[in-house]
Amino acid sequence: MLAERFRQVAFLNPGLSITLTDERPAGEARAVMFRYPDGVRDFVAALDAEAGSLLPQDVTAFEREDPRMAGTMEVAFLWSGSREERIHSFANSLATRQGGTHVDGFRDGVAAAVTAYALRRGLMTAADPDPDVARIGEGFTAVVSVKLDRPEFLGATVGLLGNTAVRACVGEAVQEHLGIWFEERPERAAEIVARLVRGLHED
Rank of each mutant, 00 (worst) to 15 (best):
A3D: 14
E4S: 12
F6M: 15
A10D: 03
N13C: 13
N13R: 12
P14A: 08
P14K: 02
S17P: 00
I18C: 07
T21P: 01
A29M: 11
R30M: 13
A31F: 00
A31K: 09
M33T: 15
R35E: 14
Y36V: 01
R41E: 14
D42C: 01
E50I: 09
L55N: 03
V59D: 03
T60F: 05
E63L: 12
D66P: 09
R68T: 14
M69E: 11
A70C: 09
G71Q: 10
W79R: 05
E84L: 15
I87C: 06
S93L: 10
S93Y: 08
S93C: 13
A95S: 13
T96P: 06
R97V: 12
Q98G: 11
G99K: 04
G99M: 05
H102A: 11
D104N: 13
D104Y: 08
F106R: 01
G109I: 04
V110L: 14
A112G: 04
A113H: 01
R120K: 13
G122T: 01
T125K: 10
T125Y: 01
D132F: 02
A134Q: 08
R135V: 08
P151Q: 06
L160S: 06
T164W: 06
A165Y: 05
E176H: 13
I180F: 04
E184T: 14
I192R: 01
I192H: 00
V193L: 12
L196Y: 00
L196K: 00
V197Q: 06
R198P: 00
H201I: 07
D203W: 03
